[in-house]
């Protein structure tokens, strides 16, 4: 039984790699998607930094290295995961060396060239303005939450673990937002009026009580100007729907 299972799994990886090498681009895409966590894990291990979504040079180099590993891999190179991690590591380290050299060059130029440094300052200023704005939004969100006696830590503990429970909670939050009278009570009492919601929207009190903090936070987020978090919620809803 073990042999059979092992064989099945092993073969499929080899077979998939073969298929990709033969030019199956769709399979390649799927494969890479599956191995993205490996890429991230490997990069983070080297840099000990999170990869930022806005500045993902390292990430694209990692993906490039994964592609390279797929093309160069053959059975005699041992475990594919180890091999891929090795290739990713070396590419990332090459990149970091290059960056280090490059950044040195820039800093020297800046010292010599005043115009250049001014330009640099200006772009930095834009960055600062942007991050200040975001910080302000987060602060507002946190203040709102604390009015309702919720901290961010509470939210990490009260997460509905299961995807469907979470989606359901978001749906309830949306329904509450549409309901004028509930919203009035919500802001007046600074808490989610559980029995009222249960009666008006036909949801069991058990569900409401269990996800109360999460639902409250979602309502507050959706009813604010906190665009980023709203985008996250919307984006996820869309994704879940498109997967269905």
């Amino acid at each position: 039984m073990r042999g059979f299972l092992n064989l099945g799994k092993h073969d499929s990886l080899e077979a998939r790699l073969e298929k990709i090498k033969a030019g199956d681009e769709e399979e390649r895409e799927k494969f890479i998607k599956e191995y993205v966590p490996l890429v991230i894990k490997t990069i983070v291990k080297i840099t000990n930094r999170y990869i930022e979504v806005e500045n993902d040079d390292e990430f694209s180099i990692g993906i490039g290295a994964l592609n390279e590993a797929i093309d160069r891999y053959s059975g005699d190179k041992g475990n594919f995961i180890n091999y891929a991690a090795l290739v990713i590591r070396s590419r990332i380290i090459d990149y970091e060396r290059k960056i280090k050299k490059h950044s040195n060059v820039i800093s020297i130029n800046q010292m010599e060239d005043e115009d250049g440094s001014k330009l640099q300052l200006k772009t930095d200023g834009d960055d600062i303005a942007y991050s200040l704005e975001i910080r302000e939004q987060i602060q507002k969100f946190k203040n709102r939450l604390s009015e309702f006696n919720i901290s961010l830590e509470d939210l990490t503990r009260g997460n509905p673990k299961h995807k469907d429970t979470r989606l359901n909670a978001i749906n309830i939050a949306r329904d509450v937002l549409k309901h004028r009278r509930i919203m009035e009570a919500f802001y007046q009492k600074k808490t989610l009026p559980v029995s009222f919601v249960s009666r008006e929207l036909c949801v069991s009190t058990k569900v409401l009580k269990r996800s109360k903090k999460y639902i409250t936070a979602t309502i507050l987020a959706l009813d604010s100007e906190f665009e980023l978090i709203k985008d996250y919620i919307k984006g996820w809803e869309r994704e879940v729907k498109s997967n269905e």
């Binding site: 840099t47 930094r49 910080r135 979470r166």
Partner: peptide, 18 residues
């Protein structure tokens, strides 16, 4: 991005709002 609030390990250079 799937609407969970989580605690993650702290790493170098991480900033609020990223």
């Amino acid at each position: 991005d799937d609407c969970q609030y989580l605690k993650l390990k702290k790493r170098k250079g991480i900033k609020q709002g990223r």
